[in-house]
Amino acid sequence: MIYRVIGRILEALGVLLLVSFFVFSIATLIPGDLSLQLTGVDGATEENIMRVRAELGLDRPFIEQYLSWIWNATQGNFGNSPLTNRAILGDVNAALPVSLQLALFGLIGATIVGAPIGVFAAVRSSSRLGQLIRTNLIVLLSVPSFVVGALLVFFSSRYFPQTYRSLFIRISDNLMENLKVMFLPSLALSLTLAGVVAQVTRNALIQELNQPYVLTARAYGFSSRKVVFTYALRGAVVQILTVGALLFGSIVGGTVITERVFALPGIGNLMVTAIGNRDFNLAIVAILYVTVVYLILNTFIDLAAEKIDPRIRNMKS
């Protein structure tokens, strides 16, 4: 077991290294850097730019910059963002919980809405209602999140002003207010993702319902409920979990749009803003945080899958 854990950690470090290298490379390829931001439009003389660049160390060769960043990183020193002059770690640490919370609530909401629809669609797949659901799911799937978000903001601010909160309150500051703030964005995300959850649930469940061991259950006269929930659902859960975990990861890193529409200071927002400003020191840390989230999720999926499906434990890797 020890070997396994060590192996995983080494793997993770390798991934992080790769990602950091990749981001660094992209950073050098993208035109423009912080020097322009710092000098401002007026002060953008040749001398000033060169001076700022030298200050920031942006004129050193790529490898040197990268290695010195790595060196600092291993000591936990990520420095300050030249733009904000605040510690990078502090900003990122503050942003991550926001995204995690959004992802959690969004996913839970999506499951509450989507999973029952998926189960229903699978069980009734041959009936007309089932077919109807299948086609409508595709519609649900195609509505972009910002449309849902924007619509929600519009309608809530007009007709249900109590639900709309523009100022973000941290969970550590005031739980109730935080929940009120998170309500609409979570709802937006849930509605967007419910379609995906429903689709995956439906497909996985249909596959399971066609398995021979489910037929055995029917042959022994088990009730429909038992057949679906005890015998069929278990096999489907691995697939659903996998998709769910991946969704979680993509929300944490990717719902910039939802964060922007609802003005949430999440990590997606932070990342995109930083990149837009060419503040790569900040961006790279944010990206790495998201990578770590994915790595943890991956491990979680593997462990959960093994627990649920015992055949996986004995398979050759």
């Binding site: 077991m1 020890i2 070997y3 396994r4 462990l303 093994e306 434990r313 004995n314 398979m315 050759k316 890797s317």
Partner: peptide, 12 residues
């Protein structure tokens, strides 16, 4: 034939 090490590091 070696099976994969499972969680408890038992190689079967």
């Amino acid at each position: 034939f070696l099976a994969r090490k499972n969680f408890m590091n038992k190689v079967k």
